[in-house]
Write a protein that binds this DNA or RNA. Structure first.
Length: 505
RNA sequence: GGCCCCAUCGUCUAGUCAGGCCUAGGACACCAGGUUUUCAUCCUGGCGACGGGGGUUCGAAUCCCCCUGGGGUCACCA
């Protein structure tokens, strides 16, 4: 008894001419999840694509678990990603308030109506009793929903028990024998039998309405045109549609985006890796790279484009191009994109971006020393460093570790470096270069490559015989930036000192 | 288990709605070369997929059915 769900019934992009109003509705019970960030991104993109409005609505009906810090970190994460909202906290708007906890008057009116019209009823089952009935129904493998005795209570009796102080919740009276159709921009027509939908709790015993209740009412009141949310909400949709029908309000278009999966192929969770956007911020992923990556998870511009800007995404964004299957969170690709963005950045901007990490690693003080390229730690020197390291960086946070040797007095030689210096004649060649370097007026000598070649010829050996131990002595390892850059960043004093004070073999 | 969703290289995907232009394209990863004073970057090449079975059709990755597989959900959380 379900529709085929074939491609034919996938909605056209804009099924009507309502202005585009979308919302992201996080609940402030934790950090912003990667999946939530992508959902927010898609909402934002649709609004920007159509010159619509992006609403941020805080779903804080769970008074037990809300925290102010969570809210703050969610807002911070969104701003960091560049997802600016037009209505919501700190932005205001004509459909506020934007905190559900402050919208009780709206809900109260609906509650009274529901009670009067009979589509809400008082249920006196305790949570345990309700759970037991649900389980028993499951155990008996009976079709449809479990039967709630409170559903058949007379209004008089229900009111009497309530007046006597008995605790109750308000449940939605799901109509029997209905077929609920949901039009979804990503999945086409999806339908549910109402007999499969349980009489869900609309208002808790403490008087606070639940998610499904508030959500449908707010979406209607805020004139939301498209609800773009995670696929885990697909099964909630008939509840919200039925409520909207009872209330006689508009039902938005839906677009349920596939889940982001962890390495285990299941919904991304803390078990399989970091799930909060904040974790990635802390690890030194540039915002543009993360934005690009998130967009790529489930969306594609065409068959070739993988690196694109926000503007390009906005220009190309279309719900029809969101894929239906879940996507694994591929850290390799994320890492690649980061490198790509780091290499694209202008040196001054990259220097700014990397500064916090240098400070955190204690390589650089709050206030940079004055001076030019010759002053270690100065702005000019740092830009030189960044330029030299740029194409070797995968993450912003990698710089301190990779560049530490340029900040220290002496080099720490690793095994490979020691081995290189232990080779026959290596130390002598390093000393010869040190002497030649000292004799030069310019430091490092101009045309360093050519200069070195001349030195090698004078010594009668190949480049490798000189460069390798020289690098080992200078940097303490065998990889890294060009030696001319290393020399310049080290400066005459430090560089020569390193060449003169080789580690004992 | 019930209900719902999904199914192209190891991964992200293009192609599926309007069946032939697909001996299935791109990117990441991986492997092999090249450039380079090292590392990295960059360039070239390679590996590698339509889950299975039935239909429909002159022709199916594309349409239909079944199977299999994966996921989501079954809260007084959202």
């Amino acid at each position: 008894m379900r529709d085929s769900g074939g491609p034919m019934d996938r909605l056209e992009a804009m099924s009507d001419s309502r202005p585009v109003r979308v919302r992201f509705a996080p609940s402030p019970t934790g950090m912003l999840h990667i999946g939530g960030a992508r959902t927010a991104l898609f909402n934002w993109a649709l609004a920007r694509r159509h010159g619509g409005v992006f609403v941020l609505r805080v779903e804080d009906t769970d008074t037990e678990r809300n925290t102010a810090e969570s809210l703050q970190s969610i807002l911070d994460s969104m701003r960091w990603l560049g997802l600016d909202w037009d209505e919501g906290p700190d932005a205001g708007g004509e459909f506020g308030p934007y905190f559900q906890s402050e919208r009780m008057p709206h809900y109260q009116a609906a509650i009274e109506r529901g009670l009067n019209e009979g589509w809400l009823y008082r249920c006196f089952l305790t949570p345990d009793e309700a759970q037991a009935m649900r389980e028993q129904h499951l155990e008996e493998k009976r079709p449809g929903r479990w039967e709630n005795p409170s559903r058949e209570l007379s209004i008089a009796e229900a009111e009497q028990r309530a007046a006597a102080g008995e605790s109750f919740v308000l449940r939605f009276r799901v109509p029997l024998g209905r077929e609920v159709h949901v039009q979804d921009h990503i999945r086409g027509a999806v339908s549910f039998r109402s007999d499969e939908v349980e009489d869900w709790v609309a208002v808790r015993a403490n008087g606070m309405p639940t998610y499904n209740f508030c959500c449908a009412i707010d979406d209607a009141h805020m004139q939301i045109s498209h609800v773009i949310r995670g696929e885990e909400h697909l099964v909630n949709t008939p509840k919200q549609v039925l409520l909207a029908e009872a209330l006689g309000v508009a039902v938005p278009d839906f677009a349920h985006v596939p889940l982001i999966l962890g390495a285990d192929g299941k919904k991304l969770s803390k078990r399989t890796g970091d799930t909060a956007l904040g974790d990635y911020i802390d690890k030194g992923y540039p915002a543009d790279a993360l934005f690009n990556f998130l967009a790529l998870l489930g969306f594609s511009i065409d068959d070739k484009t993988t690196v694109f800007s926000r503007a390009q995404l906005v220009e190309a964004f279309d719900l029809k191009r969101i894929s239906k299957g879940g996507a694994l969170f591929d850290t390799d690709k994320l890492h690649y994109l980061c490198g790509e963005y780091i290499r694209q950045m202008e040196v001054p901007a990259l220097t700014d971006a990397v500064l916090p990490w240098l400070r955190q690693a204690d390589l650089v003080p709050e206030t940079l020393p004055e001076g030019g390229v010759d002053v270690c730690g100065s702005r000019a020197w740092l830009e030189k460093l960044v330029a030299a390291m740029q194409e070797r960086l995968g993450l912003l946070a990698e710089l301190p570790e990779k560049a530490a040797f340029l900040f220290s007095e002496a080099a720490e030689h690793d095994d490979k470096a020691q081995k290189a210096l232990a080779e026959d004649g290596a130390r002598e060649r390093v000393e010869a270069i040190a002497a030649a370097l000292e004799a030069e007026a310019a430091f490092p000598p101009a045309e360093f490559g050519a200069w070195t070649k001349t030195q090698c010829e004078a010594l009668g050996v190949g480049m490798g015989k000189v460069m390798k131990p020289l690098r080992a002595a200078l940097t303490g390892t065998l990889g890294g930036p060009e030696l001319a850059d290393v020399l310049e960043l080290l400066g005459r004093e430090r560089a020569l000192a390193r060449l003169r004070a080789l580690p004992l073999a």
